[in-house]
Amino acid sequence: MVFGFFKKKKHQQNVRVLEDGSDAESGIRFSSELVPRLKSDHQELLVIYQAIQKRFAEGDLGGTVSKLADFRYLLQDHLLTENVRFYLYLSQQFAEDETNSELIRGFRQEMDAIGRIVLRFLDRYEKMADDHGLANSFLQEFGEIGAVLTKRIKKEEQTLYPLYLPHY
């Protein structure tokens, strides 16, 4: 019994304290670089989106498809980072706060649905350079995707990202 006390005490002394003041065993840790990185991803996605528009307007279907691949790569990386680092951190921080937990869960579910739609869109149009018939419906769908993503980015940056704070 006494040895268990010393063992536990020794373990507590060796626990590494993270930048948010929690210990390494408490789950996903806060990263002061995460939200700036996610915002930077948003800006880069918008730049790539505009490059896709430009290439398509010029009739460069091969260049359009190439930029769509760049968009896919960055979007998938962004979504993975958001899911693994951002949403899990917020979920653990607000586990006892039903209102914010529901807000976070709703944002996550909405983004999962948007992500699936965008990835299906990218799957469909990655063959556009070989199947020029796809170009007829591309612009309208691309505009719809852009409108949804722009609205979502604004919502995330104004409503959700401010919740990402160190735990004290």
Rank of each mutant, 00 (worst) to 15 (best):
V2F: 12
G4Y: 10
G4A: 09
G4R: 12
K7V: 02
K7N: 07
K8W: 13
K9E: 15
H11F: 12
Q12M: 08
N14G: 13
N14P: 03
N14F: 05
V15D: 06
R16E: 11
V17Y: 07
V17H: 07
V17K: 13
D20H: 06
S22Y: 11
S22W: 07
A24G: 04
S26T: 13
S26Y: 11
G27M: 05
G27T: 10
I28F: 10
I28E: 15
R29L: 02
F30Q: 05
V35D: 07
V35L: 05
P36W: 01
R37E: 12
L38T: 01
S40D: 13
S40W: 12
D41Y: 00
D41V: 00
Q43W: 08
Q43N: 14
E44F: 01
V47M: 12
I48W: 05
Y49D: 14
K54M: 05
F56W: 07
F56H: 14
E58W: 02
D60F: 02
L61S: 07
L61R: 06
L61P: 02
G63S: 09
T64V: 04
V65E: 15
S66R: 09
S66I: 00
S66T: 09
F71S: 04
R72L: 01
R72M: 01
L74T: 00
L75C: 03
H78Q: 14
L79W: 12
L80G: 14
L80V: 09
E82K: 10
R85V: 04
F86S: 04
F86N: 02
Y87V: 07
L88N: 15
L90E: 08
S91D: 14
S91E: 15
Q92A: 04
Q93H: 08
Q93A: 12
D97K: 05
T99P: 09
T99Y: 13
T99M: 13
S101R: 10
S101P: 03
L103H: 05
I104H: 10
R105D: 11
F107G: 09
I114D: 13
I114F: 12
G115E: 04
R116W: 04
R116T: 07
V118D: 11
R120D: 14
F121Y: 08
R124Q: 12
E126Q: 10
D131Q: 08
D131N: 10
D131Y: 02
H132Q: 14
L134C: 04
A135W: 05
N136C: 03
S137K: 11
S137I: 02
F138A: 01
Q140Y: 13
E144W: 04
G146F: 07
A147D: 14
K151L: 11
K151Q: 15
R152Y: 13
I153T: 15
I153L: 12
K155W: 10
E157N: 15
Q158L: 07
L163D: 08
L163P: 07
L163F: 01
L165W: 00
